[in-house]
């Protein structure tokens, strides 16, 4: 088709077909209303979508934050609930860089915690039991139910909670686990001592398994275990520090009777009142027992009264000057 032919066809076009003007105007209004409604709907959808994205972002951010916090806490709370620090305690994440430890220090498994000559710690474990770390003791937490005793002494008191979980103290000479008790583990170079005040403790020294009970003490060296001994907890060196690390005991408002009952329980002594029980209730005391051994506490308190005491074969005998 050439230009002229196209021109001839175009000349056949008489008039353009148009919709009815009135109907077209009605259609314009209808389509415009539809368009505007659709814009609003899309705007709402965009707003909802934006809000959903924003909410999701906030949630993801919060989750990440929570996980980070939780991750930080994993270094802390799963192993123990809280720690009381007495004196200066150092901890090492890098063996060459010991740092002072505070109750807020977040420890990781493998960190070494070292007490000095005059400092100690009380760990409040997640099961509610209590683990005391003696002066000059070096430990490493493995997890909430296992600790490595590198050197020194630990006192584990599970009597404070009936639901204590099995806890393992590990040394290079063996592992010590308890079945609800109060016991002390002393680990020195080439010697592991375990003394039980109440309950029962089992020791596995890689070759043999030993079970010791109330007032029994076992010593294990690289050459093997020595015979089990009977010990008296109130003045044995293994136990004396555990009393010193007790919470301060206020005597104010207490009677001599109250004090004697308290210390006899702590030192595992049987009281022989010799008829003075009622009189002792009328003797008022003042002051605080803090950082003392059992003997030091008894001496200090009885010195302020007209009463005497004597310890013989696990019995605390009370007497008066007149007598």
């Amino acid at each position: 088709m050439n230009k002229d032919q196209a021109d001839n066809i175009l000349k056949q076009l008489k008039q353009r077909t148009m919709p009815d003007a009135e109907k077209q105007q009605a259609a314009r209004q209808h389509v415009m209303a539809h368009w505007q409604n659709n814009l609003k709907k899309q705007s709402r959808q965009r707003y909802a979508w934006t809000a959903a994205v924003a909410a999701s972002t906030v949630m993801v951010f919060a989750l990440v934050l929570f996980m980070n916090i939780d991750s930080d806490n994993n270094q802390f709370s799963p192993m123990y609930q809280q720690v009381d620090i007495h004196g200066t305690i150092m901890f090492e994440q890098d063996p060459n860089k010991p740092q002072p430890m505070t109750p807020d220090t977040r420890l990781k498994p493998g960190d070494v915690i070292q007490s000095s000559d005059e400092s100690y710690l009380v760990w409040h474990l997640n099961d509610g039991s209590e683990l005391r770390q003696a002066p000059n003791t070096r430990i490493t937490w493995q997890n909430e139910q296992r600790i490595d005793l590198l050197a020194g002494q630990l006192f584990h008191n599970t009597d404070v909670t009936p639901s204590a979980k099995p806890f393992v103290i590990s040394t290079n000479l063996g592992t010590v686990s308890h079945v609800g008790t109060q016991y002390v583990v002393n680990h020195q170079p080439n010697e592991l001592q375990v003394a039980v005040k109440t309950g029962e403790v089992s020791i596995n020294n890689h070759q043999e398994k030993h079970t010791i009970k109330h007032n029994e003490l076992i010593s294990i060296s690289p050459s093997g275990a020595e015979p089990v001994q009977i010990f008296s907890s109130h003045n044995h060196p293994l136990w004396s520090w555990t009393f010193k690390t007790e919470q301060p005991y206020s005597l104010n408002g207490q009677s001599l009777h109250d004090f004697v009952v308290w210390i006899s329980q702590k030192a595992d002594l049987t009281v022989n009142w010799q008829g003075l029980k009622e009189k002792a209730k009328n003797v008022s005391l003042q002051g605080t027992i803090n950082n003392m051994t059992v003997d030091m506490a008894l001496n200090t308190v009885f010195a302020t009264t007209d009463y005497h005491y004597q310890i013989h074969q696990g019995r605390l005998q009370i007497s008066t000057h007149e007598k």
Partner: peptide, 11 residues
């Protein structure tokens, strides 16, 4: 949009 396309679509 409406002026450009309504009549064309109608046709």
């Amino acid at each position: 949009f409406f002026d450009s396309y309504h009549s064309k679509l109608f046709r």
